[in-house]
């Protein structure tokens, strides 16, 4: 059907319109162009990056040097307990980042323009997800680098490092798709910031990020034991420090649980997000 349309496209300032390549090639090319567009704007809006850079730094310093003096974790330094937690929290906060960016983009009219062009629609939403993941990777790298400088000592084989990277990428994919879907549903970037913070912030505190779940009072303990973010934090901690947590099945099998949660989130959010994107009006 696209070849028919071509005969109508005339005189583009003296340049003939190139023949359209196969769909998969177009998708890759268009996604790359749109991701490039997003990356190019990053240095021009430094405030947007503060979520993934300054915020985790503040948490690191605050917990390591203020609360950390009062928190004692048996058999390990607080750095070694805290840093995997902070990496998990950064991953989780990616939901808010992706949601706010999506809501902002969709309200600006730019996305509508892309959708009204003869580009594959999948590339528009994929570029959104990929761009967000790249931003989050930067944030996680900053947290990890800061942690190493302040005394975090992961105990990992090279295979463990690979496992960690794969887990983080899987987690980023799941939480970013979730955030993109939320951004499309909530529509307003302010509301997205508010709702995202109200949900993710407490869940990330209950997830054994800063203090062990086993020491919490009954209600937060039960929530923490089954909080998906707990699986995330516990999985990262078990890979980097080799110390599984205890309390619930998911905490005792954190890597399997985290992978399960991520695939569940992806299986639900990706089709919904694509559907929403096709229909959105």
């Amino acid at each position: 059907m696209s070849t028919l349309a071509l005969s109508h496209v005339t005189r583009a300032a003296g340049e003939t319109l190139p023949a359209r390549p196969a769909r998969i090639q177009r998708f890759t090319r268009e996604t790359a162009l749109l991701v490039g567009r997003g990356l190019r704007t990053i240095p021009r809006v430094p405030t947007r990056l503060s979520d993934v850079t300054i915020q985790p730094l503040v948490f690191t310093l605050l917990f390591l040097y203020v609360f950390g003096s009062a928190i004692h974790i048996p058999h390990m330094s607080y750095q070694n307990y805290l840093l995997p937690g902070l990496i998990g929290q950064s991953l989780a906060f990616g939901v808010i980042g992706a949601g706010v960016a999506t809501a902002t983009d969709f309200n600006s009219g730019v996305v509508d323009r892309f959708r009204s062009l003869p580009v594959t629609r999948l590339s528009v939403i994929t570029a959104q997800v990929v761009g967000q993941i790249l931003e989050q990777i930067l944030g996680i790298a900053i947290v990890a680098g800061m942690g190493l400088a302040l005394g975090w000592r992961p105990h990992m084989s090279p295979w463990g490092l690979l496992e960690l990277v794969l887990l983080i990428l899987l987690g980023l994919s799941a939480f970013t798709w979730f955030g993109v879907l939320m951004g499309m549903i909530v529509k307003s970037s302010d509301a997205m910031q508010g709702i995202g913070f109200a949900i993710v912030f407490p869940l990330s505190f209950l997830a054994g990020t800063f203090v062990p779940i086993s020491g919490m009072k009954a209600v937060p303990r039960v929530i923490g034991e089954w909080d998906p973010l707990s699986a995330l934090v516990a999985a990262i901690r078990s890979v980097t420090q080799g110390t599984p947590a205890q309390g619930s099945w998911q905490l005792e099998h954190p890597v399997v649980s985290m992978v399960g949660w991520c695939f569940l989130i992806i299986a639900i959010c990706v089709p919904l997000a694509l559907r929403k994107f096709r229909q959105s009006s």
């Binding site: 059907m1 696209s2 028919l4 349309a5 071509l6 109508h8 496209v9 509508d112 323009r113 009204s116 062009l117 003869p118």
Partner: peptide, 9 residues
């Protein structure tokens, strides 16, 4: 898709 290649908004 064909509409998008002949119409500009």
């Amino acid at each position: 898709d064909a509409v998008r290649s002949v119409l500009s908004l």
